[in-house]
Design a protein around this nucleic acid. Structure first.
Length: 493
RNA sequence: GCCAAGGUGGCAGAGUCCGGCCGAACGCGGCGGCCUGCAGAGCCGCUUAUCGCCGGUUCAAAUCCGGCCCUUGGCUCCA
């Protein structure tokens, strides 16, 4: 059936048909003024799976993800540390941390990470085009986009332009007009709300804000124009997929469309994918509300696979609730996948697997699961559906091996491993098999287990349990099975 | 206030586009059994749903139509 994606432009799930190779994909990245939190990771992980799925389906993908390194919130942190002498120093620090966070949740790198500060020329050029085309006007060294002049405004959502409550700058001709270029540097009052430390020297922080010279005098770029300039600079005037968080659909994404299409006369992004919010209790997880877990903390306490499984256990276009119990459930899911994978792998490699044994229930279930997972991912990237499909593979493996008798179906188990590794590991990015590494940990473990078996045989259970507890403290879980002890790394660190 | 999304079992959450297979998925939890020195894991069985409220259409509605109530997101920096 091929991939179908919900396109915010139409609100409908549409067949995805790229214009040309490679598929061009832009993700509206972070404003790097602080550590990334789980809500950000949710977007990254879904973008990552979208890319992996496209590639698995035979598309080549060019993936661009920006960093906004020019922003008042960043300026508000200048001076907090000795090395943070200007906003770029702060931004560079958080870009490095953010890239590390992306790796923590097993996201593949984008092909480019453009930064605003590296694209000032492109931004100025784009603004000049807009002025020349009659869609922007200059006022006291600032430049504004003339929203009423662009008929295509409101493609993503209808903003009802009369909104009187929009903060109106006196230079704006219409309340919905927005700044493309802001004259001068930041004002003290522009950063006050974002300051995290009360003892910060605001004057010094403002002095750390960057300005650039332009045809309209020194100033700073507006937020929206950056993404238009960077995306078109890297992907062309029309590209395939634009992904962003739901919270910036308006006005940011809407304004991007207006700027880009007004300047080029061409369609901007063809498919708009919006990632819904991660919510805690009753509100969205966000930096400004302070109700968040950083990616680093979350992975440290739950483990990469649990976090990744959690984030993928709800479709990208539905909201997801964050809670301790939801994480526990995700940990259980990830654990089940990993255990079944390990069981199938061990069994296939053992003499108890026979290539002449055929279990049609196992094989049928595995084949059905593969199809279900493919259908789910094609259907608006339903990662939850893919995980549910894998659950049936887990059950089939367990039923066949744990509840069944040797000889086991070599071919069937091999298929089950293949499905788990393809869907689970390669596409969803869950590191099945990581816990197997314990078997390669060291020969010492084998010796310890042998001693423990001897203790158990002798009825010395207290000492046997003590050994198990000690290993547990080192994140190694021991399970006694019919085939002897099995060791695995704890999934939650 | 305006725009948008959503209200399904103890929890969480599919299904709603294209009405009947939904007597409602998968998972978690709970109960019982098997296995087991214990624990864990696993297997088998069981458990619990007036599908927000009211009305309508239909042989038939969680699914379609109308009204109402409630929650959340956007309208300001925000993935």
């Amino acid at each position: 059936m091929g991939l179908h994606l919900r396109n915010t432009l139409s609100g409908e799930v549409e067949a995805f048909e790229p214009r040309q190779r490679p598929v061009s994909m832009y993700f509206c990245g972070l404003t790097v003024s602080d550590r990334a939190h789980l809500g950000h990771a949710r977007s990254w992980v879904h973008v990552d799976v979208l890319r992996r799925w496209l590639e698995h389906r035979g598309h080549e993908v060019h993936h661009v993800e920006n960093f906004t390194d020019i922003n008042e919130k960043i300026v508000a942190r200048v001076g907090e540390r000795a090395a943070w002498t200007d906003e770029l120093a702060v931004a560079t620090h958080y870009i490095e941390r953010t890239l590390a966070d992306m790796r923590r949740v097993n996201c593949r790198r984008a092909h480019a990470y453009p930064r605003v500060s590296e694209h000032i020329d492109a931004i100025i050029e784009l603004i000049e085009r807009l002025i020349a085309a009659g869609y922007a006007y200059e006022e006291d060294g600032s430049v504004y986009f003339d929203v009423p002049a662009f008929e295509g405004y409101g493609q993503l959502i209808d903003p009802t332009l009369e909104a009187e409550e929009i903060s109106t700058h006196p230079d704006k001709r219409h309340p919905a007009d927005f700044a493309l270029w802001k004259a001068g540097t930041v004002d003290r009052k522009d950063i006050e709300d974002y300051v995290k430390r009360s003892d910060l020297d605001l004057e010094a922080a403002c002095a750390g804000a960057k300005t650039w010279s332009s045809p309209w005098g020194d100033g700073r770029p507006g937020w929206h124009i950056e993404c238009s300039a960077m995306s078109m600079n890297h992907l062309g005037e029309t590209f395939d997929i634009h992904v962003a968080g739901r919270d910036i659909a308006f006005p940011h994404n809407e304004n991007e469309i207006a700027q880009s299409e007004a300047a080029t006369g061409q369609p901007f992004a063809r498919y708009w994918i919006h990632i819904e919010m991660l919510e805690t209790e009753t509100e969205k997880m966000s930096s400004s509300l302070g109700n968040y877990f950083t990616v680093e903390d979350a992975v440290a306490s739950w483990g990469q696979d649990t976090i990744r499984t959690f984030l993928l256990s709800a479709s990208h276009d539905t909201r997801q609730a964050f809670s301790e119990s939801a994480l526990e459930e995700a940990a259980a899911r990830a654990d089940r996948l990993d255990r079944a994978h390990a069981l199938a792998t061990e069994t296939v490699d053992s003499p108890e697997a026979s290539s002449t044994t055929i279990d049609t229930t196992l094989r049928d279930t595995v084949e059905q699961a593969r199809q279900d997972a493919y259908t789910a991912l094609d259907d608006n990237l339903d990662t939850r559906g893919a995980l549910v499909a894998l659950e049936s593979v887990v059950s089939a493996i367990n039923s066949h091996v744990e509840a069944g008798d040797a000889p086991y179906d070599y071919g069937g188990l091999l298929s089950s491993i293949e499905v788990l590794e393809t869907i689970g590991r390669a596409i969803l990015g869950i590191n099945l098999g990581a816990s197997d590494q314990v078997s390669e940990l060291t020969d010492i473990l084998d010796d310890i287990l042998r001693i423990r078996e001897a203790l158990r045989a002798a009825g010395e259970y207290e000492w046997a349990d003590e050994l198990r507890n000690v290993l547990h403290d080192h994140n190694i879980e021991i399970e006694d099975t019919d085939d002897g002890p099995r060791a695995r790394l704890s999934s939650t660190d």
